[in-house]
């Protein structure tokens, strides 16, 4: 069964017909040609399909596209302003926070969303004082980024990049 939906992707409204079973990830990649969100596991287990969905980081492989009719989506591609990279993207380049690069768009979107969560005062599993504002040390970065796996094991430099991007 098909449904007509509208999505605002990286600043542009797009209208498309999708089969109701289509995930947001497949709608982006296969239907709209937006390929920066990557399909790693397709089961919510790796984070490579992470985008900012209505302003918050979210995986797209377990979300149905029809359920997000009208949503605002920002992918890693949309974080940059043309050639002008987002500070977190620049930090990934400068700190060598990648090897093959497959997980990187998801890492970058996740990091941008994560920094917003920290700004909002959200605790994590490793936050000692649930009441206080969290302090973004390396342990916090690792825990808060644990939803993004990297098969190349670029983790040390990813942590360094996020440390830089947070400044």
């Amino acid at each position: 069964m098909d449904a007509s939906i509208r999505l605002r992707v990286d600043g542009q409204w797009r209208t498309l017909d999708v089969d109701t079973r289509t995930t947001l990830l497949d709608a982006l990649r296969e239907r709209l040609g937006v390929t920066s969100p990557k399909k790693g596991c397709d089961h919510g287990q790796c984070g490579s399909c992470t985008v900012l969905l209505d302003g918050r980081r979210a995986v797209t492989c377990l979300a149905l596209a029809v359920a997000h009719d009208g949503a605002e989506i920002v992918t890693a591609e949309g974080l940059a302003d043309g050639e002008d990279l987002h500070p977190v993207q620049r930090a990934f380049l400068e700190q060598d926070g990648l090897q093959c690069g497959y997980c990187t768009p998801g890492q970058v979107c996740s990091a941008v969303g994560m920094l917003e969560e920290v700004k909002a005062g959200w605790p994590s599993q490793v936050t000692e004082d649930l009441a206080g504002p969290p302090e973004l040390d390396d342990e916090e970065i690792r825990e808060r980024m644990s939803g993004n796996l990297c098969r190349c094991g670029a983790y040390p430099n990813i942590v360094a990049a996020i440390r830089q991007g947070a400044r």
Partner: peptide, 26 residues
């Protein structure tokens, strides 16, 4: 992340924060 949950029911905040990943919990 809700202040009342963190203050009055830390067990619930901690259980939630230990589950899945941030981009799934969102």
């Amino acid at each position: 992340a809700h202040p009342l949950v963190r203050q009055h029911y830390p067990v619930l905040a901690q259980a939630l924060l230990s589950g899945a990943s941030p981009q799934l919990r969102n």
